[in-house]
Amino acid sequence: MPSPPRGAADLGETRRWFRSVLERHHPGASADLADDAALVLGELVTNAVVHGHACRAVTVGLTADRLRMEIDDANPRLAYAGEDAGLGLRLVARGAARWGQRCGPEGKTVWAELPLRQAGPPSSGNQRV
């Protein structure tokens, strides 16, 4: 899988890169899936830049049945998606079938998965791994 643009903070360029990856590696993806996935990716990258001090890496993985996005940032504190939080992670929770985060000493990775085949409505809520 190719890497995203070097300046992952350039959200428009990152979304274009992502759509080209999805089209190349999963040409049967619906427009709705592409839109949902681009929204989720955009929110994760924006959160990494605004709240995570820096977006250090964007990784996208495709299998036969799912799309997984991982965004690494420089803030080791867990992201918060409660009712009094901003809209970003609530949009991620609505758009992804699953999402979660893992922390390390120098930052965290927030990830989200979307099904490539429709299997019913996505679940809501944060699922830590």
Rank of each mutant, 00 (worst) to 15 (best):
N75C: 13
R77M: 07
R77Y: 01
R77H: 06
L78G: 05
L78R: 14
L78A: 12
A79P: 08
Y80T: 07
A81I: 06
A81D: 15
G82T: 06
G82S: 04
G82I: 00
G82L: 00
G82K: 02
E83R: 11
E83W: 00
D84Y: 09
D84A: 13
D84Q: 14
A85D: 15
A85I: 02
A85R: 10
G86M: 06
G86S: 09
G86Q: 07
G86W: 00
G86F: 01
L87I: 15
L87R: 14
L87M: 14
G88K: 15
L89H: 10
L89G: 02
L89W: 10
R90N: 09
R90P: 06
R90W: 00
R90H: 10
R90S: 12
R90C: 02
L91A: 04
L91M: 12
L91Y: 01
L91W: 05
L91V: 13
V92Y: 05
A93I: 00
A93G: 15
A93W: 03
A93S: 15
R94C: 09
R94K: 13
R94F: 03
R94I: 06
R94W: 05
G95K: 05
A96S: 10
A96H: 03
A97K: 11
A97W: 07
A97T: 13
R98V: 03
R98P: 03
R98S: 00
W99Q: 14
W99N: 14
W99E: 12
G100M: 04
G100L: 08
G100D: 09
G100S: 10
Q101E: 15
Q101M: 12
Q101C: 13
Q101P: 05
R102M: 07
R102L: 09
C103L: 12
C103R: 15
G104H: 13
G104M: 09
G104P: 04
P105Y: 01
E106K: 10
E106Y: 00
E106H: 09
E106I: 00
E106R: 14
G107A: 03
G107C: 01
K108P: 00
T109C: 14
T109W: 01
T109G: 08
T109N: 12
T109A: 13
T109M: 06
T109R: 15
T109F: 00
T109H: 06
T109K: 07
V110T: 14
A112C: 01
A112M: 01
A112R: 06
E113V: 10
L114S: 07
P115C: 04
P115N: 05
P115S: 08
L116K: 11
L116P: 09
